[in-house]
């Protein structure tokens, strides 16, 4: 367990009832590393990253984030959540608040940042996701791509060290995928540690340090994007790649 690993996952097991959804997962992520996780639906990839900020609890093995073991201690869970940002498929913005209010909520109420300071920070991040002019609108008034970019800004406002992306572009119309991916590429270039569950293979090639392929709750293959796409080892990987790149 080297010092530079910001996330260490050891022999992770998780069940949904009788269903063994994650089987003996081992994964270490270095600070600043970008990892893309792909695989067929139901392979456990979303569950895996949801375990990292304890949206799902695990049944066996250890998860250590930034040196803090993730167990049932509320203090540890809260600490880890303030260091780990998450972006959801369905955006999950708070519809009764403006964009700016969405962004300052956590800094003000979790970290106790004074409101003006939090607002300045929020505007800075809204600028970074390229929508500073929408700060006073409500989420319902924005397009899907804009909402997802607000969701990214909202997570960044907590100044996390790790960002988790759970199929961030799957609910978007094709013409909006690009604007969200561009923001994610920016973020990657600035050195953020990122774990992305996504099927955007172009993004994986361009940004990822490692691509992980999961099927039936197991990590089947992990490699650099070039080797992963050009020279897949496992038959299931080959089948999966041929299906999504296919035509």
């Amino acid at each position: 367990m080297s010092e530079k690993h910001i996330i260490v996952i050891n022999q992770l097991d998780k069940y949904f009832g009788d269903f063994h959804v994650l089987k003996n997962i081992n994964l270490s992520v270095a600070a600043g590393e970008k990892i893309v996780i792909c695989g067929p639906s139901g392979s456990g990839k979303s569950t895996l990253i949801r375990c990292i900020n304890h949206l799902e609890s695990h049944d066996g093995g250890d998860i250590i984030v930034d040196g803090i073991p993730l167990d049932d201690r509320v203090k540890n869970i809260d600490h880890i959540r303030s260091e780990v940002g998450m972006v959801f498929q369905q955006f999950n913005l708070f519809p009764h608040m403006t964009v700016l209010e969405n962004c300052i909520l956590a800094p003000v109420w979790v970290k106790g940042v004074p409101r003006p300071e939090a607002e300045a920070l929020a505007l800075q991040y809204l600028e970074r996701v390229r929508i500073p002019d929408q700060a006073d609108k409500y989420p319902g008034q924005l397009s899907g791509g804009q909402q997802q970019r607000v969701a990214i800004a909202r997570s960044l406002c907590m100044q996390p060290r790790i960002m988790l992306f759970d199929e961030p572009t799957s609910a978007l119309d094709p013409e909006m995928i690009k604007e969200v991916l561009e923001v994610m590429v920016d973020l990657a270039e600035q050195g953020m540690t990122m774990l992305c569950v996504t099927h955007e293979m172009g993004f994986a090639r361009r940004v990822a340090d490692r691509v992980i392929f999961m099927d039936e709750g197991e990590i089947i293959e992990e490699n650099t994007p070039t080797s992963f796409f050009d020279n897949p080892q496992n038959n299931r990987t080959k089948l999966f790649l041929s299906q999504i790149i296919g035509d």
């Binding site: 900020n53 304890h54 949206l55 809260d78 959540r81 303030s82 780990v84 940002g85 998450m86 959801f88 369905q90 999950n92 913005l93 708070f94 519809p95 009764h96 909520l105 956590a106 109420w109 979790v110 909202r154 997570s155 907590m158």
Partner: peptide, 25 residues
């Protein structure tokens, strides 16, 4: 359910998340 999860993921405690996100809606 996503609203509850979003509240958790940005680090809000149960009561804060209820008061600021869930109950107003």
């Amino acid at each position: 359910k996503g609203q509850y999860e979003a509240g958790k993921s940005i680090g809000l405690s149960y009561w804060k998340s209820m008061r600021l996100i869930i109950l107003p809606q």
